[in-house]
Design a protein around this nucleic acid. Structure first.
Lengths: 120, 120
DNA sequence: TTACATACTTAAGAATCTTATGTATATTTA
DNA sequence: TAAATATACATAAGATTCTTAAGTATGTAA
């Protein structure tokens, strides 16, 4: 019998809703090809364990991005296990750019609401 | 027959998902009592029309915050129309503080992912 | 008098996530 | 060596949070 203690955070926040696609496109543009599990570990590392991407969100997202033409996939056997390496397409890079612009807009708007003193 | 042209933005982004509660609590703490319609106009003004809070999202959210004890409500007739003024409670202020902390964490984490050069 | 603005409500459906379950192999630990 | 954990992917069921849409009602401007 195991009891897990959640000391802090662990993406309890619903603010991450809608940001996964942006994160995936940006990571894949930054790091070249990556596979799903690798992405979860990279995000955990970058956020010091604060943001944990669940498989139930990750894999359907990757499939959708691929179906949209934003990613290509290539299966590869490593250590007798299958990895699916994803790579961003030119279309995906365009999408990434517009997603990042949306993120900037979102941040600016939140600042305007939360911190109206500094009129961004 | 009318055709509406959406020139730019209008919160097409799914990034706002999950941020409404934070926005409501912050605005009500900042401006004292406000009513629903007033909130939509205030947000539109602060974001220069970029973020439009829909009634279908706003009113259920206000009801939920009230049911949670974060807001109190008082109906008032003005110009022969009903307005429901909402006010933040001490509990609501606590919730606001923790929501803003979550927002800060979210922003920091997004920076770590999007802009890993600057290790925040 | 028709449209638009103000003001609130709520149901149906969509999008995006969590939880849970399943499959399979490799490695570490008790 | 058996059990637990880590690696690696998939997907269905349910939850949350939103959009769309329809409804009610009054006031004002075109």
């Amino acid at each position: 019998m195991y009891i897990y203690l959640r000391i802090l955070g662990m993406s309890t926040s619903s603010l991450y809703r809608g940001s996964l696609t942006t994160i995936l496109l940006k990571l894949l543009e930054e790091h070249g090809k990556m596979y799903g599990y690798e992405i979860t570990q990279k995000v955990k590392e970058l956020t010091q364990g604060d943001l944990v991407i669940k498989e139930g969100a990750l894999y359907p997202s990757l499939h959708k991005l691929e179906a949209s033409g934003f990613l290509t996939v290539r299966a590869q056997r490593v250590d007798n296990r299958i990895r699916k390496y994803y790579e961003i397409t030119p279309q995906g890079k365009e999408e990434k750019t517009s997603r990042l612009a949306e993120l900037d807009e979102f941040l600016a708007n939140m600042q305007r609401i939360i911190n109206p003193k500094l009129s961004y």
